[in-house]
Design a protein around this nucleic acid. Structure first.
Lengths: 190, 190
DNA sequence: CTCGCATACTCAACTTGTTGACTAGGTCGG
DNA sequence: CCGACCTAGTCAACAAGTTGAGTATGCGAG
């Protein structure tokens, strides 16, 4: 029941098609809520049935017809009600960490390769987040933005995503040095 | 199919009952893999049926009989094979971030309360992680530990949990100041 | 002496999330 | 002009995660 809220939060930026949302999720909301396009389409249908969103069909030339969704008054209220609810502890699931935990008795080289991959991915994410940040700020300083902007929510979540990925990069680097050094020690023990 | 791997990684520390694992998960693995006790019991049954773990029934006085699980050779192999697999991008899900994203058009005070709660929870987690860290180090310096210990995996994942929670605390504090200041501005506009 | 919490689970129903295949036209590069 | 990728989805089946209730005993606090 919570993908709903993520979708509604995304729709605060204005109407969007399922396809748009799938991309928008990928770009910014993915930072704290991931889902597959299929999940989105299914949830959008349900939300429409529940009256939280409404669709406007747009015929296009040279493109398939799309349906643009926007929040209804009921959706707006539901979202506000959600913000007032008490939060339950977050669910995290990271396969890489499981692999690192078991690395000592597994394939260390493969785990190192996974860590390197994750590091690159995190670095790429940082670049995208920085671009998004610059776009949100729109030339203003952070200070100016925070006092003048209508919405600060998206900026604050972006900051979380940024620092999370930076932290990721640091941790990956640390892991790699540690595992590298141990590898060396094990290959040529004293 | 992935809770399996987290369970096997946890069993590298030695045999444990379902109940033990539920608590152990809460204390350390929860950092990157959360699950309910029910999920654990169910998965343990399946893993036993698949021959990845085996159980030893222990009758106790004054306590219910328990079953201690340990990795079989097949389980060990399966875990090693898992470490060699390529990783798929992680799933994150944080309700609090959804709430923050929507805070501007919701109940800001309630969101602030949730952030405060999260901050306290993160601070408590840091304390527990630090204790666990001290226990793992066992008087050695980090340097000594990393070169002499048999397993560094659990230590590395612990480091990730620690820096994640520290980052959480910083972000929560930042959010609170930002929202506080805006609240003041909105209550008494120029 | 009772209430609540800890140990150690089981069962069932339900909601979410994942995977893979399919439709169907348009655009762009080689 | 062919194959690959983009838009904009749909459908079905399955795997995984969540919630709530129930069982049974022991221990310590009030």
């Amino acid at each position: 029941m919570s993908l709903r809220n993520a979708v509604m939060a995304a729709l605060l930026d204005g109407e969007a098609s399922g396809y748009d949302l799938a991309k928008a999720f990928d770009a910014s909301v993915a930072n704290f809520w991931m889902c597959t396009p299929q999940q989105l389409y299914r949830e959008l249908d349900r939300m429409e049935a529940d009256g939280l969103i409404e669709a406007r069909t747009v015929e296009q030339e040279r493109r398939p017809t799309k349906r643009l969704f926007s929040l209804t008054a009921a959706g707006f209220e539901a979202l506000a009600a959600f913000t007032a609810e008490p939060r339950k502890p977050t669910a995290i699931r990271d396969e890489l960490l499981v692999a690192v935990m078991a690395a000592d008795s597994g394939d260390v080289e493969a785990v190192k390769a996974s860590i390197r991959e994750r590091k690159q991915w995190a670095e790429a994410k940082i670049v995208r987040y920085e671009r998004l940040r610059a776009k949100l700020l729109g030339g203003r300083t952070e200070e100016e933005f925070l006092t003048t902007a209508e919405r600060v929510g998206p900026y604050l979540t972006l900051l979380r995503g940024l620092s999370f990925e930076r932290d990721n990069v640091r941790w990956c680097a640390r892991c790699l040095t540690v595992l590298e050094r141990r590898g060396a020690r094990l290959d040529a023990p004293t």
